[in-house]
Design a protein around this nucleic acid. Structure first.
Length: 311
DNA sequence: AATTTGCCCAACCGCAGTACG
DNA sequence: TCGTACTGCGGTTGGGCAAAT
């Protein structure tokens, strides 16, 4: 917690009609102490009564908020874990802005915290991705797609013979590594997911059979999902032939509605397969990622914290 | 070094639902 | 049944901090 938040001098004093001074603004250490001890002795609830009897010059609402969001013993502090973040993605896709409901599924996390997290990190990124409606399934699919990419990456790592050393140094937005090059998306285009997968699915399948421990240890989607990439196109309504039509299109990047994870560091000669998934309309090719405007956004994304820690 | 800008988060506000007399 | 108080929820604001200029 920031010390400044407990600075009493910053508190605002409001005089009500009966000259009862109500404090507003950040809580002081003394106020926290008073509230904590009162609740320890009398329990929580009856917040207006609590506010009066405890000697706090606060409204009941303010006391309740302070207790629930900060002072309550089981309130977790610190960054959200990857699992918690993914859970938020999933639950938000189901329930929308039902923060309290989402918070119930995340023990120790408050609705306020989740709401802030979503607004400050996710919503902003989603605006870039033109996901004004965050509840649409594609948003979650986007996350899953990135996870799938991670699985592929892991697969490649575990089998050096399939890829060159250079290939293994693919910067991906996972494991806290910020993606070095997020391209942007065409304004006004239908949201699309295009994940260009550089790798051999046969190899992947073999890898799955031979060594599944790594997949199981990772926090990404299951090995069966990762090895079943074409099937992921089904929810988006694309046929196998449409995927085949894309097989020869090596854009050298992963795209999500124009988001691109530049994979130019790949040794393209070593490519065995290029699979492109598209959600929404089949709009190919997506080449507008290198315009001046998108380059500006590239820069912004490159400096963003769109890492696996947040996904 | 000073100023500006953007991020983050605690706290506030308004509204709706519920409990109770 | 109605009115009031209480509680909970979601949206918004304001200020501290750090990075950028």
């Amino acid at each position: 917690m920031r010390l400044a938040m407990s600075t009493p001098s910053k508190s605002i004093i409001c005089s009500s009609e009966d000259d009862y001074e109500l404090r507003r603004g950040p809580w002081s250490v003394e106020e926290d102490y008073l509230l904590t001890h009162y609740i320890a002795n009398h329990g929580e609830g009856r917040w207006n009564l609590l506010a009066i009897r405890s000697g706090l010059r606060r409204t009941g609402k303010s006391c309740r908020l302070r207790w629930l969001n900060y002072l309550k013993p089981n309130v977790k502090r610190g960054n959200l874990t990857s699992e918690e973040q993914l859970l938020i993605f999933e639950l938000h896709s189901k329930w929308g802005n039902r923060w309290s409901k989402i918070a119930q599924q995340l023990p120790g996390r408050t609705d306020n915290e989740i709401k802030n997290y979503w607004r400050t990190r996710i919503q902003k990124q989603a605006i870039y991705a033109k996901f004004e409606d965050h509840r649409r399934a594609g948003f979650v699919e986007f996350v899953k797609g990135l996870q799938m990419t991670r699985c592929l990456h892991k697969s490649q790592e575990s089998s050096p013979s399939a890829m060159s050393t250079q290939d293994q140094a693919i910067p991906l937005p996972f494991d806290g590594v910020t993606v070095p090059h997020y391209s942007s998306f065409g304004i006004g285009t239908t949201p699309t997911i295009q994940i260009t997968c550089h790798g051999d699915l046969n190899h992947l399948n073999q890898h799955e059979q031979n060594s599944d421990s790594e997949h199981h240890n990772s926090s990404c989607i299951s090995s069966s999902e990762s090895a079943n990439i074409p099937n992921m196109s089904q929810p988006f309504g694309y046929t196998t032939s449409q995927f085949q039509a894309l097989d020869n299109c090596d854009f050298g990047m992963c795209l999500y509605d124009g988001y691109s994870i530049d994979n130019n560091s790949y040794d393209r000669d070593a490519l065995n397969l290029t699979t492109t998934m598209v959600a929404g309309n089949l709009e190919l090719p997506v080449f507008d990622c290198q315009t001046l405007e998108t380059n500006r956004l590239n820069k912004e994304f490159a400096s963003s914290t769109w890492s696996m820690d947040e996904l």
